[in-house]
Amino acid sequence: MKPFIFNKIKDITGICGIARAFLRVSMLGENDLIIAICLPGCSKGIIELLIQAKEKNIKILAITDCLSLPMVAFADVTLLAIAQYNILYTINMAMFALIESLTTALAIKIKKSADYLTKQTDYLLPYFYFNTEE
């Protein structure tokens, strides 16, 4: 997603984990959005991070598969990604599909990224489509 919005998306955890996330949140403001993605087992550090974000009036979008998680209480909007079957690999697939859909919708909404996606699709399509009638 990064090339589509020209470095406006930041991974606030990075390789340094929660310590770096607290530093990054301290630099965010009211016009920013934190997307908190969590399956059951959300850490205490994430909750403390969301509390800090709320104190700064930062918007929070929670993506989870369970409304009873503590982070939901801090979210301005919560999206549920629930798998029909509780099998390890299907739990994450619903969340991946939701995140992919959000990413695609955002990319299409931004004019430059939509143009880029169109050019990329036009270039790659011949490699994925075979006309068997010729």
Results as ranks from 00 to 15, higher is better:
2 K>Y: 14
2 K>C: 09
3 P>N: 08
4 F>P: 02
4 F>Y: 05
5 I>A: 11
6 F>K: 14
6 F>Q: 14
7 N>S: 14
8 K>R: 15
8 K>H: 13
9 I>D: 10
9 I>C: 09
11 D>P: 01
14 G>T: 10
14 G>A: 06
15 I>E: 14
15 I>A: 10
16 C>I: 04
16 C>H: 10
16 C>A: 12
17 G>Q: 06
18 I>W: 08
19 A>T: 14
20 R>F: 07
20 R>W: 11
20 R>Q: 10
21 A>D: 04
21 A>P: 03
21 A>R: 00
21 A>T: 03
22 F>E: 07
23 L>N: 13
24 R>M: 13
24 R>K: 14
25 V>T: 11
25 V>W: 07
27 M>G: 07
28 L>C: 15
29 G>L: 05
29 G>T: 07
29 G>V: 09
29 G>M: 02
29 G>D: 14
31 N>S: 15
31 N>V: 11
32 D>K: 12
32 D>C: 11
34 I>L: 14
35 I>A: 04
36 A>K: 01
36 A>D: 05
36 A>R: 12
37 I>P: 07
37 I>A: 05
38 C>L: 06
39 L>G: 10
40 P>Q: 12
41 G>L: 15
42 C>K: 04
42 C>D: 08
43 S>M: 09
43 S>V: 11
45 G>Y: 04
46 I>V: 15
46 I>W: 01
47 I>N: 00
48 E>R: 05
48 E>H: 10
49 L>F: 05
50 L>P: 02
51 I>T: 13
52 Q>G: 07
53 A>E: 12
53 A>K: 04
54 K>I: 00
54 K>Y: 02
55 E>A: 12
55 E>N: 15
57 N>Q: 09
58 I>K: 02
59 K>R: 15
59 K>W: 09
60 I>K: 00
61 L>Q: 05
61 L>I: 04
61 L>S: 03
62 A>F: 08
64 T>I: 04
66 C>D: 13
66 C>L: 07
66 C>G: 01
67 L>D: 11
68 S>L: 10
69 L>I: 07
69 L>Q: 02
72 V>S: 01
73 A>T: 03
73 A>E: 05
74 F>G: 07
74 F>Y: 14
75 A>V: 04
75 A>Y: 00
76 D>I: 06
76 D>H: 03
76 D>M: 13
78 T>F: 01
80 L>D: 11
83 A>P: 00
85 Y>R: 13
86 N>E: 07
86 N>V: 03
88 L>H: 02
89 Y>G: 02
91 I>N: 09
92 N>I: 08
92 N>Y: 14
93 M>G: 04
93 M>K: 04
94 A>G: 14
94 A>C: 09
94 A>D: 00
96 F>H: 13
98 L>D: 06
100 E>S: 08
101 S>Q: 08
104 T>L: 14
106 L>P: 01
107 A>F: 00
109 K>M: 11
112 K>Q: 12
113 S>T: 03
114 A>P: 04
115 D>V: 01
119 K>C: 04
122 D>F: 06
122 D>P: 00
123 Y>H: 10
